[in-house]
Structures are given as C-alpha cells and as structure tokens.
C-alpha cells in the first residue's frame, strides 16, 4: 500500500470516527436501542462506491476498533462488529448488482442488514426471544436511515471525489 493510499484511508477513518462521535452526542430521537441515523456509514458507502471493498473493510474495522476503544464497552464492540461486517458484505453485493447506481438502495439494504445483525446478536447475547419485539421498529428504521445515508453518500461523493488526488 502506497503512502498516499495509507494517508487517504487514515483520513477517511478519521472522518468516519468524527462523524460517529458527533452522532453519539445527539440525543436519541426515538427511545429505542439500535435506532439511530448511522451517518458514519456514509464514509463506508463512499469507499465502496469509489474505491474497493478492501479499502472499505479496512476503514470500517479501524473505525469500529477505535470507537470501541474510545467510547464503548466490550459488548458494544460485538454489536458494532456484527452490524458492520454484515452490512458491508450486503452493501458490496448490492452495489455490484446495481452497477454503483442508486446508492440509496444500497444504503437501505445496508441499514437493514446492520439492524438485523444487531438484533440477532442481541438475541444471542441475552437469549431472550422478547427482543424480537423490536423487529418491526428496527426494520423500518434500518431501511429509512439507510436510504438517507445513501443519499448523503451520493451527494458527498459527487463533491468530494473531484478534490481527491487522481488514482492512488
């Protein structure tokens, strides 16, 4: 990996971590665990769209690791990891199917996958089937917030990409 690439990915990881920190400072609008905007996903989507799955995975794992170290507990690492990995894989697949167009659909699928993975993790950790009561809420919020971050990523990518150094 070239120094240029390393610096660029480090910058993306920093942006993603900053967005994540800023978002956790916003008081939750809906008093339900797991319902949040997930704006840090914008960075993952931009990387998937304009770079590669490998780059997106590197930045995502850096962000998850650092955020768990800085703000989280050990358990929140597990949730982030489950949600992050599944949503990354699903988004990579959908992005490929759609030929990188209609990023909001990719975002919606990613948000959905993220929330489903977290719900399954919660089911495994607490082993109470009662958490399934959150399923409809998490489905809706995953799709809606995911579509929103998808739109954000599309717009941000359009303005950001011309300013990046050519092909690293």
């Amino acid at each position: 990996m070239s120094t240029k690439k390393l610096t660029l990915l480090a910058m993306f990881a920093t942006i993603s971590l900053a967005i994540y920190a800023a978002e956790s400072a916003i008081p939750p609008l809906v008093p339900l665990p797991g319902v949040k905007l997930g704006l840090a996903n914008v960075v993952t989507l931009i990387l998937l769209r304009h770079f590669s799955l490998r780059d997106a995975a590197i930045v995502l794992s850096a962000r998850i690791g650092l955020s768990a170290l800085l703000f989280g507990q050990a358990l929140s690492l597990l949730y982030s990891l489950a949600g992050g990995v599944l949503s990354l894989l699903v988004m990579a697949l959908v992005m490929k199917l759609l030929c990188k167009r209609m990023v909001f659909l990719t975002g919606a699928m990613g948000g959905l996958a993220h929330n489903m993975a977290q719900l399954i993790t919660a089911l495994a950790v607490t082993s109470t089937p009662g958490v399934l009561a959150y399923l409809p809420f998490l489905t809706l919020s995953g799709v809606l917030t995911g579509a929103f971050t998808g739109f954000c990523a599309q717009a941000a990518g359009r303005y950001l990409m011309p300013h990046l150094p050519p092909k690293t």
């Binding site: 199917l97 167009r101 659909l105 919606a108 699928m109 399923l135 409809p136």
Partner: peptide
C-alpha cells in the same frame, strides 16, 4: 459485466423487497 437490463431488474427486485418488509413492519405496528 452486468447489462443494463439485469441492473434494472435488480433495482426493481430490491425496491420491491424493501417496500414489502417496510409495509409488513408498518402493518404489524
């Protein structure tokens, strides 16, 4: 790799899937 047609079909399928599960969730709620 993908033609215009398969891409359009995938978009329709994904939209349909998302719409259906959202509708089911809303109805359930």
């Amino acid at each position: 790799m993908h033609t215009e047609k398969t891409q359009k079909r995938a978009a329709v399928a994904i939209s349909g899937f998302l719409f259906t599960i959202c509708l089911c969730s809303l109805l359930f709620l």
